[in-house]
Design a protein around this nucleic acid. Structure first.
Lengths: 193, 193
DNA sequence: GTCTATAAAGCGATAGAC
DNA sequence: GTCTATCGCTTTATAGAC
């Protein structure tokens, strides 16, 4: 069945791509209109709060995806499976290094002030969920905490460096080093049966 | 002696702070005027090419600083001393995590296209200089290359995560892990005398 | 719910007075 | 070399036709 009126859920991912490509300030309504095919008037009908509302809803959507697909498995699932799941999903989500992290990008400039809580919560929960998962998998708490922080920050840095030198393999290699280090951490710290 | 006419070298660092705070698109002339105390007309007198010229000269200045203070020591100095020097200078340059990397920030959005070469060269030379330094210090080439990439990307990620969760200690901890890993790498791979 | 037209403000950039 | 005034253009945002 053909729907002529597009819904928020159809438009939002395209708006997100505009923010990824041009940044929050750089993504103008004319750019968003070009990318979505939806005119400025219609955009304001769907998002009365303008760009700020768009960005807020996009951040909420990203957070929701991460909570459902990564954080909750890390928090409640079988630790080793959740960990393995994370590596593959992260690689897929960030298009093997070809897609930046919008939350990380928003954290860099003054855009951060508008979305302070959302940015903080996203990264904080990621680090915490991963840390606790590692503890449940047998890691020592301090080592788990350090490795969780290391993991999240490596993913962000990998995306930057991959874009900077136009080599997505940088991200893949970083991800591979992470999963190898995780295995080493758990193999080393799990008490033998 | 009091100079009434400010020179480029006085203005440029302040313009850089505007770009750091608001991004390339977000840093308007009115913002730059507010931060520098120099009017738009005078800014165009010093930088006829406008914002693009400002950003280009800032990137060149940053690159020059890194070449002189980090890359050349890594390339030609005593390897272990150059390495130790890098950790302390990086910590100082990025204000212990309180200052972002402008080159990395520019790499994220469409700004990248304008400064493609400068961004690429900065990161590429950093990785290469560090990699060769590690080899000269006794590391195995493949391990050195991987660790160099890991180092540069960790610094970028550390700056993002520190800002995102408002905890500069994240950067300090990442830097500490790096210097520890470097020592371990060299201790492990240097043939015993 | 879609769009065009319009308003008011801000933008980069230029001209010219001092 | 400093500044203010001004020009076009684009921006966000609104109003209103269909």
């Amino acid at each position: 069945m053909l729907r002529l009126t597009r819904e928020k859920s159809d438009i939002l991912p395209l708006v997100a791509e505009a923010f990824r490509a041009f940044g929050y300030e750089g993504a103008s309504f004319s750019q968003i209109t070009k990318l979505t095919g939806v005119s400025k008037g219609s955009l304001y009908h769907v998002f009365p709060g303008g760009k700020e509302q768009m960005a807020a809803e996009i951040l909420a959507g990203i957070n929701g995806w991460f909570v459902k697909n990564l954080f909750e498995p890390l928090e409640t699932g079988e630790p080793n499976a959740a960990l393995a799941h994370m590596w593959t999903e992260i690689d897929r989500y960030f298009h093997a290094g070809g897609r930046i992290c919008l939350v990380g990008a928003f954290a860099l400039d003054a855009t951060r002030e508008h979305f302070r809580a959302a940015i903080h919560d996203y990264f904080n929960r990621w680090v915490e969920a991963l840390s606790r998962c590692l503890v449940r998998a047998g890691a020592e708490p301090l080592a788990a905490s350090a490795f969780a922080e290391h993991t999240v920050l490596t993913i962000q840095g990998g995306l930057i460096l991959a874009r900077a030198i136009h080599d997505e393999a940088v991200f893949s290699r970083a991800l591979r080093r992470l999963s190898d280090s995780a295995e080493a951490l758990l193999a080393c710290q799990t008490p033998p049966h």
